[in-house]
């Protein structure tokens, strides 16, 4: 119940913050000296990419907490899966907005540079994580396996972030999160970018809470289903067993009769 209330507040504040970002980003901020109006995508594309990193970070943390015995609980598994699913949505949006930005700014929808390629690999890895979760398994087994898979998939996240430093790329370097922390954006443009980060982080939180609540519901639904199948199979096997022992009794008594 508390989660439902939290979700409501998070969703409302995310909606307000996103609306403010859109208004500031599209109408209030000035066009960029080089990119003109195209630079307005800087208020959404990096923020959406940051949320994808954040989501996978949360998945990794929750998976570790599941794997560590003292904190092992299916709650962490639910959080890990919810965050990964939201992360996949944000990764897809990162690739889409990047492509839309790349066409007019670079001249191409796609190019095989390290940043773009590693991001696409990131999407495939976490789609694989979600596919693994869709395999029917006992809940504890699935939680353990997907937690291990999540730890492996996360290796790609720092590679994506550092790809523009480690390799030559068409993609530009970081605007804000460079090591020296000397941002290359100022004034209202910087504030709008920051607002975008806050807005999409709030949206992430609302989505994860919503997805987590659904996971809770689905889990109790599953439990109920399992106990139903159990009682069905139990009844079936008991009637089978009854029939078998009846037949055996018959056979036995006949052979006994013969033997006597």
């Amino acid at each position: 119940m508390k989660l439902k209330i939290a979700q409501r507040y998070l969703a409302a504040s995310a909606l307000v913050a996103i609306a403010a970002t859109v208004v500031l980003g599209l109408f209030i901020t000035p066009p960029d000296a080089v990119q003109g109006n195209l630079a307005r995508l800087v208020y959404v594309h990096p923020a959406v990419a940051w949320v994808a990193y954040l989501a996978y970070g949360v998945t990794t943390l929750a998976s570790s907490l599941y794997l560590w015995r003292p904190t092992r609980s299916l709650r962490w598994d639910r959080l890990a899966s919810s965050s990964a699913e939201v992360g996949v949505v944000f990764t897809a949006l990162t690739l889409i907005t990047g492509s839309i930005w790349g066409r007019p700014a670079w001249g191409v929808w796609w190019t095989w540079d390290a940043r773009l390629t590693t991001t696409a690999i990131l999407l495939v890895l976490y789609l694989g994580y979600l596919a693994l979760r869709a395999v029917p398994m006992p809940a504890d087994k699935r939680a353990k396996r997907s937690a291990i898979a999540a730890l492996f998939a996360f290796i790609d996240v720092p590679i994506v972030h550092e790809s523009v430093v480690w390799w030559r790329t068409l993609h530009q370097g970081a605007t804000v999160a460079s090591l020296g922390m000397n941002a290359k954006i100022h004034g209202i443009m910087a504030w709008t970018m920051l607002l975008g980060f806050v807005a999409f982080t709030l949206a992430y939180c609302a989505l994860v809470v919503f997805r987590y609540r659904i996971a809770q519901g689905e889990d109790s639904l599953r439990e109920r289903q399992i106990s139903q199948w159990q009682s069905e199979r139990l009844a079936q096997s008991q009637s089978d067993a009854d029939r078998v022992s009846e037949l055996l009794d018959n056979a036995n008594s006949k052979s006994n009769v013969k033997m006597v």
């Binding site: 599209l26 995508l41 959404v44 959406v48 839309i100 066409r103």
Partner: peptide, 9 residues
């Protein structure tokens, strides 16, 4: 392009 980017998000 800008509208499309915002629209997709």
């Amino acid at each position: 392009y800008v509208e499309a980017g915002y629209g997709f998000v």
